[in-house]
Simulated assay, not measured.
Amino acid sequence: MELSLHRLRMLRELHRRGTVTAAANALHYSASAVSQQLAQLERDVGVQLFERLGRRVQLTELGTLLAEHAEEILESVGRATHALENAQDGLSARLTAGVWASVASGLLPAALTALAADHPGIEVRTRELAPEETAGAVRDGTLDFSFVIDYSDYPMPWDPALAREVVAVERLHAAVPTGVLPDPAVSLNELAEHPWVLAGPRSHFGRAVRIACQQQGFEPKIAHEVEEQATALAMVGSGLGVTLVSDLGLSLLPPGVDIVALTEPVMRRVSIAYRAKGTPRPSVRLVIEAVRAAAAEKGLGASSTLP
């Protein structure tokens, strides 16, 4: 009997999440693809792993047993990978990272270029996720590491199974239609009467901005609720409202937008998260160092505290 690690990972997610759809979403596959791979796993082992209850798939007793062993197997594979990296003189590794748009455009190009020059054996692949989803994907083993954020007024709840290291600290700025605000700096209060273009309150960014506004005594008037920062900035450039944008988000700036400093600083800290068992893999450590260097070159040097 040969066990596919790929299929065992799918089995583990089904055991954790309870449905094929939830497992597929966590692994970024279609539900039908996961179903097909699980059916093949059942054929591989030659015993019944699943039973149908209406439209749901449930693990049998043997399926649960294999899923529990899958946890141990996949953890062992991770430890073996770590050990092999430590034993190599010339490091070779393939990593999958969770990113979002401003990190992918503002930090990664310089960091990965430098990493490739110094350590050509390390290959980093990226997967774009919402910032609030990336930490969970690291915990579940879908990603090797991810970028996460904390705002000065709204820190992200943290999972003790993960470790994180700060790589950059950003300031948020007001993004307004060209010519709307002539002053070089503005308080959040001065934006209270403007229409806003902002992500929804379930997103970490959308919630953080709402909290910052509430602390200044007002609720932003949301005219357009959009999740993508590039979309929000394009709408600001068309005169449809104002928003906030981070230092790294300035790389997404379209025509028609003025950037105005905030008199009350709103900051956010960008960190890299990885699984907390033992020390980070040598390849992940080198990525962290490369990203920190890229951030420092942009004047966004890491700090362990926020104002």
Rank of each mutant, 00 (worst) to 15 (best):
V257K: 13
L262F: 08
A261R: 14
A290S: 03
I272V: 15
V284A: 00
V260W: 01
E264C: 07
A273K: 00
L252C: 04
P255T: 14
V287H: 00
A290L: 01
V260Y: 04
L252T: 01
M267I: 03
P282W: 11
K277T: 15
Y274F: 15
P255D: 15
I259V: 13
T263E: 11
A261F: 05
P280S: 07
E289F: 06
T279K: 14
V270W: 04
L252Y: 10
S283F: 01
P280H: 10
T263K: 06
E289A: 14
L252K: 01
P255Y: 14
V257S: 07
L253Q: 05
A290V: 04
I259M: 02
P282D: 11
D258G: 12
K277L: 14
P255L: 15
L253C: 03
R285M: 10
V270I: 15
M267P: 00
I272A: 06
A290H: 00
S271W: 05
T279Y: 05
S283A: 13
R292H: 05
G256V: 09
G256R: 10
L286V: 01
D258R: 06
G256Q: 11
G256C: 07
V291Q: 09
R292N: 03
P255R: 15
V291H: 03
S283Y: 03
R275S: 12
V291L: 02
V291P: 02
A261T: 11
P280W: 09
V266L: 15
R281Y: 04
P255E: 15
V260M: 13
I259D: 01
V260I: 15
G256D: 04
M267A: 13
A261V: 13
L262D: 02
E264I: 08
I288C: 00
L262Q: 03
T279M: 14
I288M: 02
G256S: 07
Y274C: 12
L262T: 01
P265E: 08
T279L: 15
S271V: 09
A276V: 04
P254A: 12
E264G: 02
R268Q: 12
D258I: 08
A273N: 01
P282H: 06
S271G: 07
R285L: 12
L252G: 05
G278P: 13
V270E: 03
T263F: 11
E264A: 13
V291G: 00
P255H: 14
G278Q: 10
S283G: 07
K277Q: 13
P254W: 09
R268N: 10
V260R: 11
I288D: 05
D258T: 08
L262S: 04
S271R: 05
S271N: 08
